[in-house]
Design a protein around this nucleic acid. Structure first.
Length: 267
DNA sequence: CACGCCTCCTGTGCGC
DNA sequence: TGCGCACAGGAGGCGT
C-alpha cells in the first residue's frame, strides 16, 4: 500500500507527535508472526524517541542508548492515536498519556528495535538505494545501474536498489511519464535520464497531495491522500491513455499488476 | 551475485 | 446464495 509519498505523509504527522516522547508501555498482539515482524520491540519500553525520519518506505527513529526504531507499514499498516480497531497489532503508551496504535490487516508491517545503523536483519534497508529527492539520486549512476542490469526495468525499480521508495503505483506512473515499457531490458542513458526525472516528478506531486489512497492507506489523522484521481496509468487498465488515447493495458509482470500504454511506452 | 518464483496474511470482488 | 479463485499499494527466502 504505502510507497514513499504515503510514508512521507505519515512521517510528517508522526514526527511532531513523537519527537522527545518517552515510551512507557509496549503491547503486541500475540500471534505466530510477531517474532518476525516485531523484533526486539520490548526494548522500546523506557526509551526516548528523538524524532521520526524516513529512508525509502521505512520510518526510522533514533532512540537513546544507541538504539533505533525501524517501522514499515507493509501493505496495510496504519498509525493512529487512540482508535480502537480489531486489527490493532501493537500499541505504544507515551509519557504524554496517549497511546499510539499500529493497525495492520495483513500483518506485513513491522516495528523493530535495532542497534543504530545495524540493518543486517532488514536486508532491503541494508541495501537501500539513494533517496530519490536528494542529490544522492544521481542521473549518471542511475543510468549505469540500468545499463548493467539484465532485469526488466519495473521489477528492477521495485527491488529498492537503484532508488529508494518506488512501489507498484509510482513505478507504473514514472514509466508512463518516461514512455518506457515496464518490461524493457534496454533502458539506455537517454531514457534513464527521462526516467530519473519522471520518478522525481511523480513522487513530488504525490507528496504534495499527501499520497494515494485506494482503500487502506490513511494518515495519522485518519485522512486519505488526494493523489488517486491524478494517476496517469495505475488502476486505469482499459481506459484511454491520457497521452495518445489508446487503451491502457494491464498485465502481470514480476508477479505484480502492471498498467501501461502499449502504443506510447516503447520497449 | 543476480534474477524469478513463491510465501507470508487477510479481505474483497468476481465468475460460475 | 455459496464456493473458489485472483488480486491487493510490501518484502523476504529460496532455488537456479
Amino acid at each position: 500500500m504505502p510507497e514513499l509519498p504515503e510514508v512521507e505523509s505519515v512521517r510528517r504527522q508522526l514526527d511532531p507527535e513523537l519527537s522527545g516522547k518517552r515510551v512507557l508501555e509496549v503491547w503486541v498482539d500475540p500471534h505466530p508472526m510477531v517474532p518476525r515482524q516485531f523484533q526486539r520491540i520490548a526494548e522500546l519500553k523506557g526509551r526516548r524517541i528523538s524524532c521520526v525520519g524516513r529512508r525509502g518506505k521505512f520510518l526510522i527513529s533514533p532512540l537513546d542508548r544507541g538504539l533505533e526504531l525501524v517501522m514499515h507499514l507493509g501493505m496495510t499498516g496504519v498509525f493512529r492515536f487512540e482508535v480502537s480497531d480489531p486489527y490493532t497489532r501493537a500499541s505504544l503508551t507515551l509519557d504524554d498519556g496517549r497511546r499510539l496504535i499500529f493497525k495492520d490487516v495483513r500483518r506485513f508491517g513491522r516495528i523493530a528495535v535495532v542497534d543504530a545503523g545495524r540493518y543486517d536483519t532488514i536486508p532491503t534497508l541494508a541495501h537501500l538505494g539513494p533517496e530519490p529527492l536528494s542529490d544522492e539520486f544521481d542521473p549518471g549512476r542511475f543510468s549505469l545501474w540500468l545499463t548493467r542490469t539484465d532485469a526488466p526495468v519495473k521489477p528492477f525499480l521495485l527491488s529498492q536498489r537503484p532508488v529508494a521508495g518506488v512501489g507498484n503505483i509510482y513505478a507504473d506512473e514514472a514509466l508512463w511519464v518516461a514512455r518506457i515499457h515496464p518490461a524493457s531490458r534496454r533502458v539506455g542513458p537517454k531514457r534513464a535520464r527521462l526516467l530519473h526525472t519522471a520518478i522525481r516528478e511523480v513522487l513530488s506531486a504525490a507528496i504534495d497531495r499527501e499520497g494515494t489512497t485506494f482503500s487502506d492507506y490513511r494518515m495519522v489523522n485518519g485522512e486519505s491522500g488526494r493523489n488517486a484521481s491524478f494517476l496517469f496509468a495505475y488502476g486505469r487498465g482499459g481506459e484511454p491513455c491520457p497521452r495518445c488515447s489508446y487503451p491502457l493495458r494491464k498485465i502481470v509482470l514480476g508477479g505484480r499488476g502492471t498498467t501501461y500504454c502499449p502504443r506510447c511506452q516503447r520497449y
